Computed example of a mutant assay.
Amino acid sequence: MASHQEQSYKAGETRGKTQEKTGEAMRTMREKTEAAKEKTQGAALTAQDKAHETAQSAKDKTSQAGQTTQQKAQESKDKTGSYMSETGEAAKNKAQDAAEYTKETAEAGKDKTSGFLGQTGEQVKQMAMGATDTVKHTLGFGTDEGNKEHVSSDPSTTTTTTTHATQRK
């Protein structure tokens, strides 16, 4: 009888140690998953900021070029007679039109870049959340004894995973 009690005690002790190690492993995986998620979000924000800075720089350079063209046209107008004045005015108008077109093109490029990076950032965030859910599912977090489904909010990347609880007899 003492042997049975000793075996039962050792089994309980082993079960306790196993549960403790499992808990530690799960905490470690949770921490690693969270760190990866934060790193991915940080990279997406950095890329978006860089694109915004690049677009703003292009817009500023275009604006400066337009102002320089206008100043040169004004100087040219002042140095010439009335005929040349008319020609200078036409050149000035063309320069203004070109500067405006360049400015609009830069703004359109900025908008396209921001939209693209916003989508990319959202996709990266969705992938990170999907990876987190996969790790949690693999480790048994967030599931109960019934069926569970996870559906992504992005319809183009919808993934449905169904798990069934096993019954022990």
Rank of each mutant, 00 (worst) to 15 (best):
M1L: 06
S3T: 15
H4V: 11
Q5D: 15
Q5T: 08
Q7S: 07
Y9V: 01
A11W: 01
T14C: 02
T14W: 03
T18G: 05
T18H: 11
E20R: 05
G23T: 11
A25E: 04
T28P: 00
M29W: 06
E31H: 03
K32N: 12
T33W: 04
T33H: 01
A35E: 15
K39W: 06
K39G: 11
T40K: 06
T40M: 09
G42Q: 14
A44F: 03
T46E: 01
A47I: 02
K50Q: 12
H52P: 00
H52S: 05
T54V: 01
A55I: 00
A55G: 01
Q56I: 04
S57A: 08
T62I: 07
S63Y: 08
Q64I: 05
Q64K: 08
A65P: 01
G66M: 07
Q67A: 07
T69G: 06
Q71G: 02
K72D: 02
E75I: 06
E75Q: 07
S76N: 05
D78T: 01
D78N: 03
D78P: 00
G81D: 14
G81Q: 10
S85F: 00
S85G: 15
E86S: 12
E86N: 12
E86R: 09
T87H: 02
G88H: 00
E89K: 05
N93L: 12
Q96I: 08
D97Q: 08
D97I: 03
A99M: 12
A99W: 08
E100V: 15
E104V: 03
E107M: 04
T113K: 04
S114E: 12
G115L: 15
G115V: 08
G115E: 13
G115C: 10
F116C: 15
F116A: 14
G118H: 02
Q119F: 15
Q119P: 10
E122V: 10
E122F: 15
Q123G: 10
K125H: 13
Q126H: 05
A128M: 02
M129T: 09
G130L: 10
A131L: 09
T134K: 02
H137A: 13
L139W: 01
L139D: 05
L139H: 14
G140M: 04
D144T: 15
N147E: 10
H150V: 04
V151R: 03
S152M: 13
D154E: 14
T158G: 11
T160D: 09
Q167V: 10
R168F: 14
K169C: 09
